[in-house]
């Protein structure tokens, strides 16, 4: 792989890698550093890329491993600033609807952040990034059964909490 191919094919996945790293680290600067390190690793290992069937999943796996390494070395707790940086306002919403939406987003963020680590990763990869079950198995180094069980538990934990809010208007 030459530099042009790297620039046109590999670099564009940066946002997926960034979002995934952010899920672990909760800090944009740290996540950015991890993504940069991932690309350097990918470049160093580009000779193996021909033998890798799904290089995007490979990049995601490296992102996960490096993020976990970094988490271990960080002494401070990850800062939960993800929700603060989202702009969820859409032109079609009235100010009242936007406020309501803000609240719902914050609640769902809370629900998802409260999930066990594996469930959080699986629901992110499937429902945010749209990866297939096989790809998720490859990224998280889990078997199909574990992936499905974790996704089922994650979706249903969030569903239960959503039903409670809607039932009691909390």
């Amino acid at each position: 792989m030459n530099l042009e191919a790297f620039e046109s094919q590999v670099l564009p996945v940066k946002n997926k890698l960034f979002r995934f790293a952010l899920k672990f680290l909760g800090n944009e600067e740290e996540a950015k550093d991890v993504v940069q390190e991932v690309f350097i690793r990918v470049w160093k290992g580009r000779e193996q890329m021909d033998q890798i069937q799904n290089w995007e999943a490979w990049c995601m796996r490296i992102t996960r491993n490096l993020s976990l390494d970094r988490l271990r070395t960080l002494t401070r707790k990850p800062t939960q600033n993800i929700e603060e940086t989202f702009d969820i306002r859409q032109e079609s919403f009235t100010p009242h609807e936007s406020t309501e939406m803000d609240e719902s987003m914050n609640r769902i963020t809370e629900f998802i952040n409260a999930l066990p680590e594996k469930q959080k990763q699986v629901i992110h990869l499937r429902d945010v990034e749209g990866y297939s079950y096989n790809e998720i198995c490859e990224i998280l180094e889990l078997d199909m059964n574990q992936v499905k069980v974790n996704l089922f538990r994650a979706r249903n934990a969030v569903r239960e909490k959503l039903m409670k809010i809607n039932a009691y208007g909390l």
Binding site: N15, F18, K32, M101, S104, I108, H124, V128, L162
Partner: peptide, 22 residues
């Protein structure tokens, strides 16, 4: 409830690495 959850997923997917020099 489901609409909020899918809205959350859509919003999350829009998050990008906001650095032009990256």
């Amino acid at each position: 409830g489901a609409a909020n959850l899918f809205q959350y997923f859509n919003t999350h997917k829009k998050k990008t690495l906001n650095d032009v020099s990256f």
